[in-house]
Design a protein around this nucleic acid. Structure first.
Lengths: 258, 258
DNA sequence: GGCTTTGTTGCCGTATATGCAACTGTATTG
DNA sequence: CAATACAGTTGCATATACGGCAACAAAGCC
């Protein structure tokens, strides 16, 4: 997330695309200028070329939105990342057993991104999570991944993320309680973070043969259905993650060095 | 798709991302250099920054693949493009009725992109189409959209796409037979293209209040199940598209001027 | 171990991205 | 409806970062 000296235009253009993706109902040039810390003139020109290139579309001469072009990028990722295919039947099975939403999340640098989601046949469904980005320390899935990394790397990442914005402030942790959390997760075999909102989540980790994190399996559900089942669901998630680990035996965790 | 003079680095970077998305199992620098018509040195540096930015990941010091970062862009699009939400129940209903895969496709410049797909509960499913790009004249869905445009624009697009690569060569059309195809689609109310492969497709158009194309509703299925049902399924697709047109009455087709 | 192929780096000229400021056009407000 | 405020685009000068060539390093391949 640091500003690179070279190919600044490319970095800024991609930053603009991400900002537009995060926004609701289109962003204006000045909003983008504020978000990216760039002069309006540059943003205006960058936006113009992104429109020419077909990645942005003008909504009303003021706001721009993403075009469907980005879907082909996502498709390319899904096609290449074969862990999804391996995992899907296990996720489906888990969803059928527990009757709640199941999500698969992988590491992406210091962040996580959700890549698969399977919903039970319920009248009210969880919002789509595929594509969600979150700092590694802020979610149950992220912590399941983080806990499996070498401790020095954990601390490096925690330091880096100290000032990253998180959605739920209660997940911030000082380093002392971190060790306790880690120990707790180790003994339980899954991660559960008490939260103040209405959604309960548990996460367990699928590992490669070296014990490095491949992906986290999470169960999401409304608190009123899940609050008495946390231990049971945590065990289910752990069992599914273990099965996935075996099924993906050949796959090695990707490098994430900088 | 023309090379713009300004912000060449941005255009090239995005081009690289798309090339990697199209490729199978990662591309090398030289492959990318050939595909994009750029010097290896520039590609090497562009790839390095794209890796730094977290959009590409190195696979084996030679090949690069996309990261999950692009999923968040796709999520942003899906969130913004509310036609999907409006359409989904109708697509689901159509899928339930006909028992085949249903796909929603929109226009993106001279191309189409599929944005929704609903599969029936069958042991063998259609491959995922979301994110597929195709030239407007090459598919049933694309033609359903193209036929609703002013004739001069149709010819302009056909001229532009004359040399675009198409997956199935048999879809190429000279301009004389074009008028016949157009007339045929008008009278039938849907588009069906005889093809030599094993998949049958019919497509019908949802329009905005001005008659401009909003999206195409397609039914996909294996030939052995669909070949005797083409007319029936075409009518079903047309009926669903009509319902969607009414449901999306307020929505105007996006501008696609250049 | 030589040979081929591929990826990275130095270097320099030039194209070009950028920020400032002026300008235009569009909403806003009384 | 006029005056105002604000957002978006454009001119311009300058620094600079991009891009191509060529040399270098590194990794497969006989």
């Amino acid at each position: 997330m640091t500003e690179e000296a070279r190919y600044r235009a490319l970095a800024r253009g991609l930053r603009i695309l991400e900002a537009v993706a995060d926004g609701r109902g289109g962003l204006t040039v000045t909003e983008l200028a504020e978000l990216t810390g760039t002069d309006k003139s540059s943003v205006s020109r960058l936006v113009a070329t992104l429109v020419d290139l077909g990645f942005l579309a003008r909504l009303d001469n003021r706001r721009v939105v993403l075009t469907g072009r980005v879907l082909s990028l996502a498709k390319g990722f899904q096609k290449q990342y074969n862990l999804s295919e391996i995992a899907r039947p296990y996720l489906q099975e888990l969803c059928d057993v527990v009757g709640e939403t199941v999500i698969l999340t992988i590491r992406q640098g210091d962040y996580t991104v959700s890549i698969e989601q399977i919903d039970p046949e319920q009248p009210f469904r969880m919002v789509p999570h595929i594509g969600n980005l979150a700092p590694l320390h802020a979610t149950a899935a992220g912590r399941a991944i983080l806990f499996a990394l070498p401790v020095v790397e954990q601390h490096r990442i925690l330091d880096d993320l100290r000032d990253a914005p998180v959605e739920h402030p209660e997940v911030r942790l000082d380093r002392e309680s971190w060790a306790r959390e880690l120990e707790l997760a180790r003994t339980r075999g899954f991660v559960w973070i008490p939260r103040t909102d209405d959604v309960e989540r548990v996460a367990a980790l699928a590992q490669d043969r070296n014990g490095l994190p491949l992906a986290a399996v999470s169960i999401y559900g409304p608190k009123y259905r899940m609050q008495n089942r946390v231990t049971e669901l945590g065990r289910e998630a752990r069992a599914t993650a273990a099965k996935m680990s075996r099924a993906a035996y050949g796959i090695r965790a990707r490098e994430h060095s900088r």
